[in-house]
């Protein structure tokens, strides 16, 4: 829901009028070809891509999955940008004043492009939870922010993934802006022991489903009309 009083920032930032529904045009059905960006060799590896002589501290993990559309069709060549706090819950950002320490070997910035089957992979550390000023001191569950460009501008998605079993998930006012528990569940990455790197890192699977061509505003119209 746009206005979610439990998440205080929405109170003055959520539009109060209904969205104006229009049919997609050729503009929204196409999108920028950012999947062709020449990435650096470590862009997907947050353990090493800001290292100053050592690996980033924390629980070493893979975050991987598949980008799909609503018809379960893989979305290849999708640019995925991520950002996250370090293992202590601190962002390497000028505006983050949380008392937890920065990690000199970690910037929390990564990106990759999905392959021909829509698959993607990051290596990173599990971010820590952190407090934030909302209803006093609320706590964010561990999360990674993701920005995804699919094939169409109408598929643009910015979201956050959470980690299976985190007791902070149901307490989070930002998570709870989503009223449907099943939809929240789609933001939870699953521990996947088969895809661990033995004696190195755990693996969490997170599939991403981008919206298809939107026709729900015209649902009274007969199929094909």
């Amino acid at each position: 829901m746009p206005l979610s009083p439990g998440y205080k920032s929405t109170v003055l930032r959520a539009p109060l009028r209904p969205l104006h529904a229009v049919e997609q045009s050729a503009l929204e059905r196409s999108g920028p070809a950012l999947g062709n960006t020449a990435l650096g060799p470590l862009d997907h590896d947050l353990i090493r891509n800001a290292a100053q002589g050592g690996d980033a501290l924390g629980e070493r993990i893979y975050v991987f999955g598949q980008v799909l559309d609503e018809n379960a069709r893989p979305v290849p060549n999708a640019l995925i940008e991520i950002w996250q706090a370090n293992a202590a819950g601190r962002y390497a950002h000028v505006k983050d004043g949380y008392l937890a320490p920065l990690d000199p070997n970690f910037s929390g910035c990564g990106r990759c492009v999905s392959d021909g089957e829509g698959r993607y992979l990051f290596r990173t550390i599990k971010p820590g939870p952190y407090p934030w000023p909302n209803n006093g001191s609320d706590w964010r569950p561990a999360h990674i922010h993701l920005s995804i460009f699919g094939e169409a501008f109408a598929q643009r998605l910015v979201t956050q993934l959470y980690f299976e079993g985190d007791p902070l998930i149901p307490l989070c006012p930002i998570v709870n802006t989503i009223p449907d528990p099943a939809a929240i569940d789609r933001l939870v990455a699953r521990l996947d022991m088969r895809n661990q790197e033995p004696f190195d890192c755990l693996a969490y699977r997170f599939d991403i489903v981008l919206r298809g061509r939107r026709q729900t505003h015209f649902e009274t119209r007969p199929e094909g009309a």
């Binding site: 018809n71 379960a72 390497a92 950002h93 000028v94 929390g108 920005s147 981008l210």
Partner: peptide, 30 residues
Amino acid sequence: MMIGKLQETPSQTAGPYVHIGTAPQSIGRP
């Protein structure tokens, strides 16, 4: 109405630290 086989991943706020992942130069990083 088109009903997909899968349901879309919900959106969440970009939050205040969006610069880290989308424009690191805006916070003094390369």
